[in-house]
Design a protein around this nucleic acid. Sequence first.
DNA 1: CTGAAGCTATAGCTTACCTCA
DNA 2: ACTGAGGTAAGCTATAGCTTC
Length: 281
Amino acid sequence: MGFDDLYNTSLVLGLGFSSSSTVDTTKSNNKVKINSNSELPSLTLSLSGEIYDSTVKKVEFSDNNKGSGGPYLSCGDNLYRQDSGASSFVSNVSSVKREREMGSEEVVLSSRNLINSTTTTTTDEDDDGLINGRKKLRLTKVQSALLEESFKIHSTLNPKQKQELARELKLRPRQVEVWFQNRRARTKLKQTEVDCEFLKKCCESLTDENRRLQKELQELKALKLAQPLYMQLPAATLTMCPSCERIGGGGGGAENAAKSNFTVAPKPHFYNPFTNPSAAC
DNA sequence: CTGAAGCTATAGCTTACCTCA
DNA sequence: ACTGAGGTAAGCTATAGCTTC
């Protein structure tokens, strides 16, 4: 590519992810979603032409059912959750799992009620494990701290660890499990927001860089027009990057001399504005 | 060995409740 | 007292991985 060719090019700023993943920063329920599969962001600054190119089924058994947490059966003043049985559409997996956990919960049931009644909102569970409505359990500071400590060590729990932690905290294993699920989700959400901010900064930085390079290009074009013809001949040995004004020195001899005055990345490449001072160098 | 079926864990999304300004 | 926003426990579905037959 010759110098003249370069005059007729424009710079293109590209922001995206490597491979085929896409960025989807739609906000839903105040949540930022990025479908990135944890891939690195690919920020490119290149010449033009070089950019490579459930339906929720719910059955309301009772008009008193305020929430959507699932079907409820009313019985007197109580609303009983219908987790399994007749309402067979309810997740088979969930019900089986819950039944299994109910069994294992028996170990901690008595002591749990003790701590709940003293430190948290009670769950109003009767002996059959039926939930009266949907009460909000509030973990105590001690419980939260212990869970946090545990999360720092491992973000996922094996069944044994879960049981152990549940016993220690006097909670149901299911509650420990849910806490870890939500905790992982929060961590991910936070990371996503951080990533989003990072990408925004990258984008801003590259936009600035692009603007600056466009300006330089314009200046060089103007300079060329102002120069007499003999000065427009390509330099034989010296090359200079217009961006950082560093002399490239044409050490390659004839081979380099045959090329353009300064090199431009032939393919889009990852550009990190926080580590690279100039995309052109 | 292969494929279907079942089980389990997890992610993602959503809802409901609680707290607080 | 009321209200809206934010935090969070817990619900459900989808999916992947594993085991069993």
